[in-house]
């Protein structure tokens, strides 16, 4: 297991290297110039040129990349051109709101999807199943920003029970923090729930049709024990995979949700960096997102072993 983990960790390096080259090239080949953003739209061409020179943007891209790489391997990703802090600091600061949103959304999604999906599979074809599938279909069809705006209109503007948008860390002020977090978590979580619900239902159906469940049933195992102890545990693999992939997507920033609810997370950081052509931040955020995605995938693979003893991975795995 340890060997396998180490091997997998080492395999991350070439992926990160390739991503860093591609992203660096893309960023620098895209038109737009941070010097123009700093000086404003009507600054003279000479001033923009002079600032570009001072920022080192006129040097060959390959040289700029090597310099960046040289610093990056020591953990220094440079400083933001606009935020008056280092890229590492910016990513760390913005990762906190995103992580809070991701966890809250995932809790919402799992709380809706796993019980509903399991019950829908157990009573397949029943009105409950039809309802669950209907809900899932609507959830998949409605983009999270539409749901978000509807929730804002009903709960924030209409009933005035929750704030429209904003952010407060739940660590600083748990009550205020949760009030701000609730609407974005529901709007993002509900959409994810639709996807998870289908995965759960399909996985549970698969397991329910298997011989060992039939055998267990014939031995007189109670239905609830059968469903939650035998079936759900065995249906766990695809569900964990789906949750993992979802979480990977969430921590790299729910761009639209963060924008609507004005959450200063990774998604907002990325969007603002693109708008301003804040090259160091852009590069840093994409590297962080890549790493986060890879680590979550690795974690999911490792969790497989915990969920399903049959594929508990050996050193040779």
């Amino acid at each position: 297991m340890l060997n396998y983990t180490l091997k997998r960790l080492l395999a991350l390096i070439p992926v990160l290297a390739v991503v860093s080259v591609v992203i660096f090239a893309l960023i620098h080949l895209t038109p737009g110039n941070p010097a123009r953003a700093i000086l404003g739209p009507e600054a003279s061409a000479a001033d923009v040129e002079a600032l570009s020179e001072r920022l080192g943007l006129n040097r060959p891209v390959a040289l700029q990349y090597l310099e960046w790489l040289g610093r990056a391997v020591t953990g220094n990703f440079g400083d933001s051109l606009f935020l008056r802090k280092s890229v590492t600091q910016a990513v760390a600061d913005n990762a906190v709101p995103t992580a809070q949103l991701a966890i809250a959304a995932l809790v919402v999604a799992v709380a809706i999807a796993v019980p509903l999906g399991t019950l829908a599979a157990r009573w397949r074809g029943s009105p409950l199943d039809a309802l669950a599938m209907g809900v899932s279909l609507v959830g998949m069809a409605v983009p999270s920003f539409v749901l978000g705006l509807i929730l804002i209109l009903v709960l924030a503007v209409g009933l005035r029970v929750l704030p429209v948008a904003g952010y407060e860390s739940v660590f600083d002020d748990p009550v205020r923090g949760l009030r701000y977090l609730l609407l974005p978590a529901i709007s993002l979580g509900a959409v994810l729930a639709a996807f998870l619900l289908r995965t759960t239902r399909a996985a549970v159906l698969d397991v329910l049709a298997s011989d060992y469940i039939q055998a267990a049933r014939s031995r007189g195992v109670t239905e609830s024990r059968l469903l939650f102890r035998h079936t759900l545990r065995n249906a766990g693999l695809p569900i964990v995979t789906a949750v993992g992939l979802t979480f990977g997507a969430l921590i790299t920033g729910a761009v639209v949700t963060e924008t609507i609810f004005n959450i200063p997370g990774i998604g907002s950081l990325l969007v603002n960096a693109i708008k301003r052509r804040d090259y160091p931040v852009l590069q840093g955020v994409v590297m962080f997102a890549t790493l986060a995605y890879l680590v979550v995938n690795l974690a999911v693979d490792l969790v497989y072993g915990l969920v399903d003893p049959r594929i508990r991975l050996s050193g040779n795995g």
Partner: peptide
């Protein structure tokens, strides 16, 4: 000053007294 890029959020936030 709050930086709120989404225009709809700005308007709704004004309506609710945020």
């Amino acid at each position: 000053f709050k930086f709120v890029p989404d225009a709809a959020t700005r308007v709704l936030g004004l309506q609710t007294g945020e």
